[in-house]
Design a protein around this nucleic acid. Structure first.
Length: 604
RNA sequence: GGCUGGGUAGCUCAGCUGGUUAGAGCGGUGGAUUCAUAACCCACAGGUCGGCGGUUCAAGUCCGCCCCCAGCUACCA
């Protein structure tokens, strides 16, 4: 049986995520994970918080707490919110975990000893007032090209020109505003990505047509522009320490400069992808602890290391901003650990249990808010915590999945959200479940009727359902989420069409057996909908399953037996209204609260 | 500036290697129905496929130029 390993891009620890983050990785990954489990495939869905880097240190300082405490608290917040949205992580780890420290350091050591990491001295801006090195964008000043006075050290937002902090006129710290800044030398480790360029190109070229165009295009863009070596350490206090005292000599016989690397931590983008692996290790430790076993009794490497993992399909989900790090940076790390390169550029596998590279990479564009970006500072857009105060998670899950930015940026618009939720969930699905169950209660004593035999109408329905179910299954296998939601909605529509045609309320007067067939068929449709809707709207799917006495979560149905689920005589019961409609005055209120098409008027 | 992606009905989007009258949902209009959350079901409305030029028997689909939107441009993550 195939195994499916799923990771979604790690949400950054710095604050509560908005709907775009949910759309860009976590929710599609969850829908896919639920589908795969429902298909009976052994599935592991891994996610974690991405905790290191300058923004974390600054946010913790602002909150007046240590970064470790800040992260521990925010991890819990993000975990709870994810669970409330029904995200079915097998494990939601932390990139600051001991497991990730160990793996990151071990990988770095291997890369050093293989000659894939080298030391370089770089010039970095240091702020005396802040007592820290400043990343380029944390230095602001006047743009030498356009005179904009709040240009960042990496790029001027006004004229869009790419800058170097040294270009800025009157540079100052973006943190404190202090002009007491200077350029200092700092020793750093660089991952020699340039050595990997030909190998990566061959790998990416082979994924053309298989991965989304967006993904291969971004990856090839980086290769076409010439892959540069990348600094993988930073001058920060919070992170995975380089800790190179046990490292051996590199191929040139050189040992690392322990003094020069003493206060360095790894760059967040070096350790964050490794956390996918480390979080799997965390998962195994947690499973072992729960079962009263020793940690080594749960084998987590079978998900990651060949040949044991040869039956694993590894699927990554992420927004387009993450694509370079997953198609270039992380693969360099893994290939560098797995293989060696000789002087002629020939590669050979040295590790007898190499780490697995990604098989399927699903990348997404941006979800905007009325055509603009979500903005924390301006209070523009909807965030995960407030979303759940307004409406149940399934409303959000459905809309986001149906509008996920697969081929281009898409927009969240309240009016459209309202229209789609009301039509799809309340009118089509919710009303269908309600109408057939209510009818069963009033006319068939609330039990699946046994009388009658299928006629042409039922045969046609079975054929249509089988075709649509096959289509849905195919789209889900291909991770085509918009098309999947379309197929699912069409499946729901088949239910309403059938019921209208079969009209048991009419048949009841002349041919009770015919009415019984229609009701039984309708109830089986309800059971079917519970099963196929579960990946998308799990909370409601469970209520629907219970209404017809089915266990939950159920197995993904086979097309030829999709309508043969419920035994005659099974008691059924109409649930409370599944989806309450979103009213116009609610929408008006939310637009006023969160912003809409019109710019939010500034108080005078 | 360079590069990447996108520009298809009022709105949100499908349209693979070029091939009969360009599709879906929403919104709109009309009809049917009464089991149901004033729900469902049926039908209709119609867009010079961003612009111009080219290749071809045939172009939304290929080529060239131009316009517009978004992103990236390596120390934000």
């Amino acid at each position: 049986m195939p195994r499916i390993l799923i990771t979604s891009a790690l949400p950054y620890i710095n604050g509560i995520k908005h709907l775009g983050t949910l759309a860009g990785s976590m929710l599609p990954a969850d829908v896919y994970a639920r589908f795969q489990r429902s298909r009976g495939n052994e599935t592991l869905y891994i996610c974690a918080t991405d905790e290191h880097g300058t923004p974390t240190e600054l946010a913790a300082a602002e909150a007046g707490v240590a970064p470790s405490d800040f992260c521990a608290e925010m991890h819990k917040v993000q975990y709870d919110l994810g669970r409330k949205f029904g995200l079915s992580w097998d494990h939601f780890g932390r990139s600051s975990s001991p497991q990730n420290h160990r793996l990151t350091q071990r990988f770095a050591q291997t890369l050093w000893e293989a000659g894939f990491i080298e030391e370089r001295v770089t010039q970095q801006v240091y702020s005396l007032a802040d007592k820290r090195f400043l990343p380029d964008r944390y230095v602001i000043g006047t743009c030498p090209h356009c005179g904009y006075t709040a240009a960042r050290g990496d790029q001027c937002e006004n004229c869009t020109r790419v800058l170097d902090p040294a270009d800025l006129i009157a540079p100052r710290s973006a943190i404190s505003g202090s002009t007491e800044i200077e350029i200092r030398d700092s020793k750093h480790l660089f991952l020699r990505q340039s050595l990997f360029a030909p190998k990566l190109r061959e790998w990416i070229e082979g994924k053309k047509g298989e991965w989304p165009l967006l993904v291969t295009s971004i990856a090839l863009k980086w290769l076409d522009e010439g892959l540069q070596d990348r600094g993988i350490t930073r001058d920060l206090a919070w992170g995975v320490p380089v800790n190179a005292m046990d490292w051996g000599a590199n191929p040139e016989g050189k040992l690392p400069d322990l003094a020069g690397l003493a206060d360095k931590v790894f760059y967040v983008w070096f350790d964050a992808p490794i956390e996918y692996i480390a979080a799997t290790w965390e998962w195994a430790d947690a499973v072992a602890a729960e079962a009263g076993l020793e940690p080594q009794d749960v084998n987590w490497e079978r998900w990651w290391r060949l040949p044991e993992a040869s039956d694993v399909t590894y699927v990554e989900f992420m927004g387009k901003d993450n694509v370079p790090f997953h198609t270039v940076g992380f693969p360099c790390t893994l290939i560098g650990v797995n293989e060696r390169r000789d002087g002629e550029g020939r590669w050979s596998v040295v590790n007898n249990s190499p780490w697995k590279l990604v098989d399927q990479l699903k990348g997404f564009n941006w979800l905007d808010y009325y055509g603009g970006r979500f903005s924390t500072s301006q209070g523009r857009g909807v965030f995960m915590d407030t979303a759940l105060e307004l409406l149940p998670p399934d409303y959000w899950r459905w809309w986001i999945t149906a509008n996920v930015p697969e081929s281009q940026d898409s927009s969240f618009v309240w009016e459209q959200f309202q229209a789609q939720i009301n039509a799809d969930l309340a009118d089509v699905l919710g009303n269908f479940v309600n109408r057939i169950l209510k009818f069963t209660e009033t006319r068939f004593d609330g039990a699946v009727p046994a009388d009658g035999l299928d006629g042409p109408l039922e045969q046609k329905l079975a054929k249509d359902v089988a075709a649509k179910l096959a289509e849905l299954t195919e789209h889900m296998e291909a991770r085509e989420f918009r098309k999947s939601t379309t197929a699912l909605r069409q499946l729901w529509v088949l239910g309403n069409q059938y019921l209208t045609e079969a009209a048991p309320w009419t048949a009841l007067k002349t041919d009770p057996a015919r009415a019984a067939v229609a009701v039984r068929t309708g109830l089986n449709l309800v059971a079917l909908f519970a099963k196929v809707s579960e990946p998308f709207i799990p909370f409601t799917a469970e209520i629907i399953a219970q209404a017809v006495g089915e266990s939950f979560p159920g197995r993904w149905p086979q097309p030829d037996a999709a309508l043969d689920i419920l035994p005659p005589g099974r008691p059924v019961k109409a649930p409370e209204v599944l989806f309450r409609k979103i009213e116009d005055d609610q929408v008006a209120e939310w637009i006023a609260r969160f912003g809409g098409a019109e710019p939010v008027p500034q108080p005078a």
